[in-house]
């Protein structure tokens, strides 16, 4: 790796035939591994090993003695307690799931709408962008807790109770969860808006990269604005939608407004003797939470990504046809050449 180029040249001149073709590539690969190495070590030490350890913990009860930590294996006891004896955790995780499933699409759609508005011919676009981006800088867990505690995140004029009552009247029985979630959305409208700052900017910069000649061409062909949105805008920014959904879910989940992670921390602080606290129990909760979060993200991403691009498909088909044709032409040429040879011989 440290060999300088002069040395290389000298070697080349001395014995030119012995250099293998893959040598530079291999040296490049070694250099690449060297650059990435710190991260790989970190990945193993700070992520993969703790991941395995945490699974071990989750199957055990952990006690602290004078000599250090003592792990008592209890198989799946923690998980069973979690869903049979713990009164709070199942409720919190269900509310986390419904909230995420409802708020994430709302945030993304809202961000898209705002970005579309900002994308037009707007004066003071910079000012609006700065305002919408501001919460990204200041909306952290403790600040949000303070603001929510003070009622600064609800606008008094939005009467969420009326909406809730109306919904409760319409909804069939057994869907109280949905009503509650919707009421929650209206109650915390500012919180939801505050979490869409980055998404707006991502959408906006994606929208501005779309070639305007596409819209002009569509306009000449008689496409309305509505059609243009569905046929041009949406397919072009589809990757951004996936990105934003994933981003939203991750940042909403890791915020301290999420009661589940607060519970995990509290359980860690709690005494090791109680059944619903201690490191083992906290690890089990963390595992359930993580699996749920990864599942939600996976499902959302799959739902949005399944349909492949129409153009890509057509290009692929065209390429296949081209190859076939080329092969046919080559075959004909070869046959001609063969025939010509035979004629000559004859």
């Amino acid at each position: 790796m440290a060999m300088s180029n002069e040395e290389k040249k000298v070697k080349k001149a001395a014995k030119p035939k012995k250099i293998k073709p893959g040598k530079i590539a291999r040296r490049d690969a070694i250099a690449g591994v060297c650059f990435v190495l710190p991260w790989v070590i970190g990945l193993i030490v700070f992520k993969l090993v703790p991941l395995i350890n945490s699974f071990q913990y989750s199957l055990a009860r952990i006690k602290f003695t004078a000599r250090g930590m003592k792990i008592e294996f209890k198989q799946f006891e923690n998980y069973i307690t979690m869903f049979t004896e713990d009164a709070e955790f199942p409720v919190q995780i269900v509310s986390y799931i419904t909230q995420t499933l409802i708020t994430a699409p709302i945030i993304v759609v809202f961000a898209l709408i705002i970005a579309m508005f900002l994308n037009g011919k707007i004066r003071c676009r910079g000012l609006f962008r700065s305002i919408y981006f501001l919460p990204v800088i200041i909306a952290s867990g403790p600040v949000m807790n303070m603001l929510v505690g003070q009622g600064a995140t609800t606008i008094a004029t939005i009467d969420s109770e009326t909406i809730t009552n109306a919904l409760a009247a319409i909804m069939p029985e057994g869907f109280e969860g949905v009503t509650d979630a919707v009421a929650d959305v209206f109650g915390n409208i500012i919180t939801i808006l505050w979490y869409s700052g980055v998404q707006i900017l991502i959408f906006l910069s994606a929208l501005q990269k779309i070639d305007s000649s596409l819209y002009e061409a569509a306009g000449i062909d008689g496409g309305s604005g509505w059609e243009c949105f569905w046929k041009i805008t949406l397919p072009t920014i589809k990757p951004m939608i996936v990105l934003n959904v994933v981003y939203t879910i991750i940042f909403r989940s890791n915020n301290e407004q999420n009661q589940v992670i607060v519970m995990i921390k509290d359980a860690m602080k709690g005494s090791a003797t109680a059944k619903t606290s201690g490191y083992g129990y906290a690890s089990a909760m963390a595992w359930v939470f993580s699996v749920v979060e990864v599942l939600i993200i996976g499902i959302m991403a799959l739902l949005l990504m399944t349909r492949k691009d129409v153009y890509e498909k057509q290009i692929k088909r065209q390429k296949k046809l081209d190859k076939k044709e080329a092969r046919a032409i080559r075959r004909v040429r070869r046959r001609d050449a063969r025939n010509a040879k035979r004629k000559k011989a004859a």
Partner: peptide
Amino acid sequence: GLLIFTFVLPSQITMMPLYVM
């Protein structure tokens, strides 16, 4: 792929072992 996976993974899951470490 692992890079993206660790981004998706919540930090809570590795918290307890890291704390012990």
